[in-house]
Design a protein around this nucleic acid. Structure first.
Lengths: 132, 132
DNA sequence: AACATTATGTAATAATATAACATTTAGAAG
DNA sequence: CTTCTAAATGTTATATTATTACATAATGTT
């Protein structure tokens, strides 16, 4: 069972926006969209984003500086994330493949490092863009 | 055999700096370090970085906005990269593990997407930082 | 020599993110 | 219900990362 986080006002506004958008959103585009709701400054957005990332409600797509709602309801913390990114239309989706996540969560090499987190981004052409 | 790219003047200066540093470097830190060599503007740095990334001499660590020299001499193009990042000391190293790269290069799911590239970043504590 | 491609130089500015400080709100403990 | 604490908010300013636009020079090809 997922812990219920009571989102604060700003967190809820921003999460709902990202979630409803269905795709990745950039911080300043979020800011623009929530200004009518009284969120006026970048920092207000970044603070909400930081918290939402921390509790796993959204993930950051590092290569795009964008944020996407977690599509995996069982995902509490952002410690094991994988995405597929279309380099043509910039569509992003979260990959939830238990074999992949098991493989990566258990990965270790001879560096003596203990991995507690990973982020994987695959790039290519999505079905639509491939057939163009 | 790796194709020999004749680096231009700026590309060579910047690659040598990153390579000698032995770790990831940020664009504006690179800029600062090469100003005595006549490279004065951010754009000159970013252009060289773009080219070096394109030909696989360096890689971008997306989560850190930093650039590291490729540590894998057989790596021509930056299409399959994996790094381990210490969240305490920020040490970064390139993982070269043929099983991992095979697994990821051959990965496919039911999205209909053809993956041509990936970037994986593992996070944790390195040996040194763990024992502190 | 003519042409195309790649690289360079320079200034301005866009886009992304954080620091610092004051105040308010929401929960927990007594 | 009051006191305390942690979390969240509001606001201004600024730091950091990256690109646009335009002019010129060097390099490679036919």
């Amino acid at each position: 069972m997922q812990k219920e986080h009571n989102l604060s006002k700003n967190q809820k506004i921003i999460f709902d926006l990202i979630d409803k958008s269905g795709g990745p959103m950039k911080a300043y585009s979020i800011l623009f969209n929530v200004q009518k709701k009284g969120i006026k400054a970048p920092l207000q957005v970044y603070r909400a984003l930081d918290k939402l990332v921390e509790i796993g409600k959204i993930h950051k797509i590092e290569s795009r500086n964008a944020f996407i709602a977690c599509q995996n309801s069982s995902c509490q913390v952002s410690k094991a994330t994988a995405f597929s990114i279309c380099e043509s239309c910039e569509n992003v989706s979260e990959i939830s493949n238990s074999k992949l996540s098991k493989y990566l969560s258990n990965f270790s090499d001879n560096s003596g490092m203990k991995y507690s987190k990973y982020n994987l981004e695959f790039f290519g052409l999505c079905k639509k863009c491939k057939s163009k």
